[in-house]
Amino acid sequence: MIYKTFHFKTLLYLLPAVFIFLTFNVIPGLTSLVLSFFDFTGFETNLFRNFVGIDNFIKIYEDKYFWIALKNTFLFVFGAVFIQTGIALILSIFIFFGNFKFSVLVRSIIFFPCVLAPVSVGLVWKKILEQDGVLNSILGLDYSWLSSVSLVMWLIIMVNTWQWIGYNLVIYYAGLQSMNIELLEASDIDGANWSQKIFTIVIPLLWPTTILNMILNLIGGFRAFDIVYVLTRGGPAHYSEVLASYLYYYSFSAGGPNKMGVGASVAFVIFACILTIAVARIIVSKKLRKES
C-alpha cells in the first residue's frame, strides 16, 4: 500500500540516487563556488589553504581574453537562440506544408548530425575550412578561415547550427503535427494566401514551441566546448575562446597557466549566468500566467 505520510522505507528508494546526485553534482557545484576564492595549482594536498579573497575575479576582470570569451559565449548563445531557431522554424514549416513525398527521409537526414559526437563534427568541418580545404577550392579562394579573428566565431556558430538544426526541426515538427488545423481551414475559406497563413496563423500558433527551442538552445549554448576545442582550441590567439574553453585553458591545458582557482572563478561566472537566466525565466512565466 501507499503510505500517506513519510515512511522509513521511502529512503530505500531514494537514497542511492540522491547520494550519487549530492556527491557528484551538488557538492562539487557548491565547492566550485567556494574554490573560486582560493589560489591553487592542482599539486597541493589542501586546496583550501591559500585564501585570496576576490583576487581570482580581479585577475579575470583584468584579463582581456576573459572579456573576449564572455563576448564570444554571448555571441554563440545569440546564434543558437535566434539564428538556429529561426532557420529551424522556416525549414519545419516548409517541410510540413510542402507536401514532400519523402518527408520522413528529409527529416531523418537533417536530424542525423545530432546523434554524432561534436568532436567528430568539428573534425569533419576542420578539414573543410582549412586553408587547403575544399571550401577554398569551391570558392576559388586561398583564405585561412579559422585564423580570421572576425570570422572564426561565426564559423563555429555555423558548424554548431549545422549539427543541431535537426533537433529544433523535429521539435517544431511535433508542434506542427499537434497544431489546431481548424484555423487554417477557416482561413482557406476566407481566401488567405500561403504567406499570410504562415505569418498570421502558423508562426503565432507555434510560439510555445519556439520558446521551448530557444530555451534548449540557450542551455546548449553555454555548454559549447567540444566544437571550439577541436576546431580552433580557442585560437587564433584566444579570439575564439568561450567561457568553457577559457576555464579549461586556465586550469587543465598543458601549456596553460595551470591556475585552478581562476578556473573556478570562471565556473562561478557561468553558474551566475545560468542562474540569472533561470530566475528570469521563472519570473517571466509567472507574470505571463498572471496576465492570462
Binding site: F24, A244, A267, I277, A278
Partner: peptide, 24 residues
C-alpha cells in the same frame, strides 16, 4: 525542494563541476 534542485542542475553546464569533481 530537492526536485527543484534537480531541475536547476539540468541547465548547468558540465564544466561548472569540472575542477571540484577532478579532486573528489
Amino acid at each position: 525542494s530537492l526536485y527543484n534542485v534537480m531541475i536547476a542542475s539540468v541547465a548547468m553546464p558540465a564544466q561548472v563541476l569540472l575542477i571540484p569533481l577532478f579532486y573528489i
